[in-house]
Simulated scan of single mutants.
Amino acid sequence: MEAFVLTVKTGSFVATSISLNTSPQMIAKYIAFLENYLGLKLLNRTTRSQNLTEFDKQYYERCLFILGEIKATKTLAQQYSDEPRGNLKISAPVSYGHFNVIPVISHFMKRYPKMSVDIQLNDRYVDLVQENFDIVFRVGELTDSGLIARKLNPYQLIFAASPSYLAQYGVPSVPNDIKKHQCLIYQYVNPSKKDYLWPFTINGKLVHFPISGSLTSNNTLALAAAAVEGLGITMLPESMLREAITQNKLLPILQNFLPPAREVHLLYPADRQRPSKLNIFIEFVLDSMS
C-alpha cells in the first residue's frame, strides 16, 4: 500500500523506489501483488505516464486511511513502551531558558537517558510549526496561535545592585529615585528609541519611569555581570540573580514596587497523536514548573 500511495503521489516507480530505498522493479512487484490480490488493474500505465481510474482514486483514499491507522497504532504502542527515546527540538528565550529551562531538561535527561534534546535559546519570536520545533517556552502575553498553551510558574523581574554601588550612590527608596542612578539597560526593552522605561507597581497600578545609564547591552548575562561589578542598577529575572543575591554579590531593592510577574506558557501543537516522548516531557515540565 505504501508503494501504491507513493507511486500515485510521485507518478514514478523510480521516485517511489528512492523513497522506500528499494528498486523500481521491486515497486512494480508490489503493485502487481496488489493487483493480483484485488483482481483489478491499478494505475493505467503507458510508457510515458500513468492515469488513475475511478477505482484507483477510491482505493488510494482507503489506503491513506489504513496507513494512517497503522501509524496511529504504532504511536499508541510507543506510548506504553518502557522508556521514551528520540530527539526533542525546543525553543526558549535566552535568560529564561538558561536559568529556568536548562535545569529541568538536565533532570529530564538524567531520568530518561535515551532521550536527546536540541534546545535553541533566542529572544526573537519563534514560529513553532514553520521552524519545526516540538515545543516552545514563551514569556509574556499570548496571541491566538492555534497551539495548546499550558501555564507555568510566572516570571518575576526584580531590581538589584551591588553593595559597593549602593554604598557609593545610595539606596533608592521609591521608583522616582531611579532617575538619579546609573541603570543597566537591556537593549531589547526599547531597541528603536533613545528613551528607556522601567515598570513599577505603585498603589496597585503599573507606572513607567524613564531611566538612563552608560551601559547598554542586548545580553542579560552581561548586564547581570555588570551589576555584580558595581556598574549600576539592573532589572532582571529573579531566577537569574538568585545566586548572586544569596552570595551577597547583589542586593534586591525597591521590593515593594516590583512590576507584575510575566506569564509563562508551554506551547505545542494540538495533535491528538503526539509521540510519547513529547507527552512525557510535557508532564515532566508541568510537574517541575507549575
Rank of each mutant, 00 (worst) to 15 (best):
N132V: 13
I148Q: 11
P103R: 00
Y155V: 04
N100I: 13
Y165N: 00
S173G: 03
I102Y: 10
Q187C: 01
P172R: 07
R150K: 15
Y188F: 12
I158Y: 04
L147A: 06
P199V: 00
F137K: 03
I202L: 04
Y196V: 09
Q130T: 12
R138T: 11
E229M: 14
P172A: 09
N153G: 13
N176A: 14
G146P: 07
H98E: 14
A225T: 14
G146I: 10
V171W: 01
P172M: 09
K114T: 15
T220V: 06
A149V: 03
L121N: 10
S173C: 06
L197A: 07
L221N: 11
H181D: 09
D123W: 10
V104H: 06
N218R: 12
E229V: 02
K193F: 08
R111H: 10
N218V: 11
S164K: 10
S162K: 00
Q182T: 09
D123P: 07
Y165M: 03
M109S: 10
I148F: 05
S164W: 07
L147M: 11
N203K: 14
S162Y: 06
Y186G: 01
F209Y: 15
I185E: 07
D177N: 12
L206H: 00
L166D: 02
A224S: 09
F159S: 09
V139L: 02
Y125P: 01
V117P: 01
F200A: 03
C183M: 13
F159K: 07
V104Q: 03
V104I: 15
L121S: 10
S116W: 01
A226F: 14
A167G: 01
V126N: 06
H107R: 14
L157R: 08
A167K: 13
K179D: 10
L215D: 02
L223C: 03
S212L: 05
N218H: 12
Y165S: 00
I185R: 04
N176R: 14
T143R: 07
Y186V: 01
G213C: 12
P172S: 09
S192T: 15
G230H: 02
Y196M: 13
K114A: 13
G140F: 01
H107Y: 09
T216M: 12
S173N: 12
A226S: 13
S212M: 05
A160E: 03
K114L: 09
P191C: 04
F209E: 14
Q156M: 10
I211S: 02
E229K: 13
F99M: 05
A160W: 07
K194S: 12
Q120W: 04
L206F: 00
P172E: 11
I135L: 15
V139Y: 02
Q156I: 08
K114H: 11
G97P: 09
H107C: 06
K194M: 05
D118S: 12
I178F: 01
A160H: 05
S217M: 08
L152Q: 03
T216S: 12
R138A: 14
L221C: 06
A167F: 04
H107P: 00
G146S: 06
F200H: 02
I119H: 06
